[in-house]
């Protein structure tokens, strides 16, 4: 039982954004894709979610997803948290959850409000009125609301203040507690290292290095990859 991605390839015309990426996400774990900008992390996540055409295989607990459209993949058990806080701005916090949860949403709401207290406090507020960090929490809760088996997070810390980033870290740590598997694309390597059990470093569309966080922490490897030779 896992989310298996094999030979993922995404090309926008002559530009190959993702070139043969393979990885596995186990339930209850957090796997990260890190790397400098333009590495293809977001493209990979978006391809797995079905927003862009791609080659390669995506298997969700053995079910092939490659030929399905985005909403079918969502119904199969895949949830998505886009970069830049994906919430429905003109709907209230409660409605955001309801839209994702479908029938039986009231029960789900109680559970989610327990995990993310901010939801309970702000239940009647419009999503666009929340702060960046609160919106990100809502976005993650919304993804959880559809009872997915795997969640894809695309750069959740981007544009957030350091305090809000702490909130995001806590939210991610909650996620694996609920039993889902998490695939995280993050430019913020330190954040990714602190929450993941497995890290894949992507550069220019390929995975250059796969390791456990312990092996990469404190080395110059990442710094060299991000800032080039001059910095290392």
């Amino acid at each position: 039982m896992a989310l298996e991605v094999t030979g993922l390839r995404v090309a926008y015309g002559p530009i190959t954004a993702v070139d043969g990426v393979s990885l596995t996400v186990e339930p209850r774990t957090v796997t990260s894709l890190v790397g400098p900008n333009g590495a293809g992390k977001s493209s990979a996540i978006r391809a797995i979610m079905g927003f862009v055409r791609s080659q390669g295989e995506v298997l969700l607990d053995g079910e092939p997803l490659s030929k399905r459209r985005t909403h079918a993949r969502a119904r199969a058990g895949l949830a998505y948290v886009p970069d830049g806080r994906g919430v429905f701005g003109d709907m209230t916090v409660k409605e955001n959850i309801r839209v994702a949860a479908g029938a039986g949403w009231e029960a789900r709401w109680e559970a989610l409000a327990a995990l993310f207290p901010v939801l309970g406090e702000k239940r009647a507020a419009r999503a666009s009125e929340l702060s960046g960090g609160q919106q990100q929490a809502l976005s993650i809760a919304r993804a959880l609301a559809s009872a997915p088996r795997y969640i894809l997070l695309d750069e959740p810390s981007m544009g957030l203040s350091p305090v809000a980033v702490k909130g995001v870290v806590e939210a991610i740590e909650q996620l694996s507690g609920t039993g889902v598997g998490v695939l995280l694309a993050e430019q913020n390597a330190a954040l990714a290292l602190s929450v993941s059990s497995m890290v894949h470093v992507m550069v220019r569309g390929e995975i250059r290095r796969s390791a456990e966080p312990g092996e990469l922490r404190g080395t110059d490897e990442l710094r060299a990859l991000y800032l080039g030779r001059a910095a290392a």
Binding site: H71, A74, G86, F88, A100, S146
Partner: peptide
């Protein structure tokens, strides 16, 4: 409001 996000939420 957001067709792309709606698709990701399972809405056709």
């Amino acid at each position: 409001q957001n067709p792309q996000l709606a698709g990701a939420t399972g809405i056709n």
